[in-house]
């Protein structure tokens, strides 16, 4: 699939923004100023960008606890996301959701999700709504290798085929469900192999290769949009940080992350490919690097400066009417 230069720059900007966002959170979290848990997506950016580049305002995504990348790729406001992670009233969820529950339904982002396997049934519902309402929209669920074993995911794969839903299931297999390797916890070599049992295509793609993901994602979205049929895609990827910030990652091999960063980084691979093919110049990507850095710096400054929610907010927004 041929990408325009604008598309290439947009893809890079998404990935770089996510990377800056996550790297900065890694630093800021260590200061103790950010409450709760954060689960960083650094290393996996090509997946969020590769899929969400195909989606538009009609489409919805369901995310998981590692949802910052998905949210940025789907168009959520970065300032509001950062403020949310700091628990501020200017946050995307008014400071009531936090990192694990970032959502913006107006952007088709149905929510990060604190429950492993929580998203796929919701995505089925969004796909059903698109189908019944004739919007032409599709729904896409991002989940991990841990969730790929959940009953909710199996049930959703089954339901999507039974109801012919315009739904895409994306397993981001980063090798670990918390501290347990997918080699141990997933009963088959590739989670995508399970697709056959649900009578849908199962595709494995290299998570470090934006272009491979973009191509597979394009076909899955086309199949959903045009044929109202689901696809399961497994993205073989890696995370650069622990399950959550503070995870010492003693379960990982020596130099595993160091080698990944040096040789398999999705941003570096993207840059090498587009510059060597003379599609984009280094300077243009450098400019995006600078802008992404400035954006995140500004987001952090504003988030830190913002107020915490008013005490009265404790009791609001439980119900629309009660």
């Amino acid at each position: 699939m041929q990408l325009s230069k604008d598309d290439l720059l947009r893809a890079y900007r998404i990935m770089k923004t996510v990377r800056e966002f996550e790297e900065r959170l890694h630093v800021e979290f260590a200061t103790g100023e950010i409450p709760g848990f954060v689960h960083l997506y650094a290393g996996e950016e090509a997946s969020a960008a590769g899929f969400c580049m195909h989606l538009d305002g009609r489409d919805k995504i369901a995310s998981n606890h590692r949802g910052h990348g998905h949210s940025i790729a789907k168009g959520c406001d970065v300032h509001a996301m950062m403020a949310e992670i700091y628990g501020r009233e200017t946050g995307l969820c008014a400071g009531k959701g936090g990192s694990m529950h970032i959502a913006d339904l107006s952007m088709g982002m149905m929510g990060a999700n604190g429950i492993v396997g929580g998203g796929p049934p919701l995505a089925c519902g969004a796909a059903l709504a698109a189908k019944k309402l004739g919007t032409g929209g599709v729904a896409l669920a991002f989940f991990g290798d841990g969730a790929s074993n959940q009953g909710t995911v199996m049930e959703s794969l089954n339901l999507a085929t039974v109801w012919n839903l315009p739904c895409i299931f994306v397993v981001e297999n980063n090798g670990y469900a918390e501290a347990t390797s997918s080699k141990y916890s997933v009963s088959c070599d590739d989670a995508a192999d399970r697709a056959g049992a649900f009578n849908m295509p199962g595709v494995v793609v290299d998570g470090h290769d934006f272009f491979a993901i973009h191509e597979a994602g394009g076909e899955a979205v086309r199949r959903a949009r045009e044929d109202s049929a689901p696809t399961l895609i497994e993205v073989k990827t890696n995370r650069y940080y622990g399950h959550f910030e503070g995870d010492a990652q003693t379960y990982r091999g020596k130099d595993e992350v160091k080698n990944l960063r040096a040789n398999r980084d999705c941003l570096d691979l993207f840059r090498a490919r587009v510059t060597s093919a003379d599609l984009v110049e280094d300077a243009e990507l450098d400019a995006i690097d600078g802008e992404a850095g400035d954006l995140i710096e500004d987001a952090v400054i504003k988030a830190k400066a913002a107020s915490r929610p008013a005490a009265s907010e404790l009791l609001t927004d439980v119900y629309i009417s009660y």
Binding site: G91, C93, A94, K96, G97, D104, L105, G111, T316, V318
Partner: peptide, 8 residues
């Protein structure tokens, strides 16, 4: 959803 997503 309603609470966790800030009333939206």
């Amino acid at each position: 959803f309603r609470y966790m997503f800030g009333g939206k």
